[in-house]
């Protein structure tokens, strides 16, 4: 397992640097943007907008995630020894790949959210604000991005399944097409889960310029999303075992 983790760390490390820089710079840029590019002829003067950086940050993160998966497979095609080191049916390899990418993503989301909300609020009320911001980042990461990473792992295994038959491109098109509609379906179902069984959690939601809102969110959709991620991983493992090496 540690060997696979080392291998994955080597692949993920460049993206980690990019994402860490983006998580720091984008909210700051979004915050400073109106001050730099609309210097005060307007009345009342323009207000900084940290939400801009947050939106760009999420878009960039998703693009980076997808691109890192593409590049990873492109490099694999060029380097047969990497293929040799990481057989796809191996559970340890799969878990190492998922856990490192999911950890990077969670770190990125939490950093982006916490930093943006700190900027949006213009003051720090320790430890109340950072903790609530951290929770909201963790919640959104668990609800959306961890299942998304598991789904991408499944996509990779599925496309690889057809590679020997020169049908990988076809499988990729089919999977992406099906994913769009499955996300539609799953998103509706997960969003409709009512939070009546478990007590809700309080997280922070930053809105600019109206301020912040402490809101209650249900636990159940989060657990459903994490369970779904587990199902995707199990499925990816099962498909990986069917690959004829």
């Amino acid at each position: 397992m540690s060997g696979f983790l080392w291998l994955e760390w080597r692949r993920v490390r460049p993206w980690l640097y990019v994402l860490a820089g983006a998580a720091i710079m984008l909210p700051l840029l979004g915050y400073l943007w109106p001050l730099i590019f609309k210097p005060g002829h307007d009345f009342p003067p323009p207000r900084p907008d940290p939400e801009l950086g947050l939106s760009i940050g999420y878009a960039l993160g998703i693009a980076t995630l997808a691109f890192s998966f593409l590049l990873r497979n492109w490099r694999r095609g060029k380097l047969p020894e990497v293929l040799f080191l990481s057989p796809y049916h191996d559970l340890a390899g799969l878990l190492a790949q998922f856990s490192l990418v999911a950890a990077v993503w969670t770190f990125y989301t939490v950093a982006l959210t916490t930093w943006s909300q700190m900027l949006a609020r213009l003051w720090l009320q320790l430890p109340y604000n950072p903790i609530l911001s951290f929770q909201s980042g963790l919640y959104s990461a668990g609800l959306v991005f961890v299942p998304a990473v598991a789904w991408l792992v499944l996509l990779e295994r599925f496309a690889w399944r057809f590679r020997l038959y020169r049908l990988a491109a076809l499988a990729l098109v089919f999977f992406l097409s099906g994913s769009a509609f499955a996300a539609w379906l799953v998103g509706e179902r997960v969003g409709a889960i009512s939070g009546e069984l478990l007590s809700p959690w309080r997280i922070l939601q930053g809105r600019w310029p109206t301020g912040v809102r402490v809101m209650e969110v249900s636990q159940e959709p989060l657990w459903a999303a994490l369970l779904l991620a587990l199902v995707f991983l199990g499925w990816a493992w099962a498909i990986g075992r069917e690959v004829e090496l």
Binding site: R161, F174, G178, A180, F181, W184, W235, I239, R241, E242
Partner: peptide
């Protein structure tokens, strides 16, 4: 390529597309 896990995933995705 027709393993049970692959086939099941193809059917699930086909179901999602058909539903859409």
């Amino acid at each position: 390529p027709r393993g049970p896990a692959t086939k099941a995933l193809i059917l699930v995705l086909l179901g999602a597309v058909a539903w859409a």
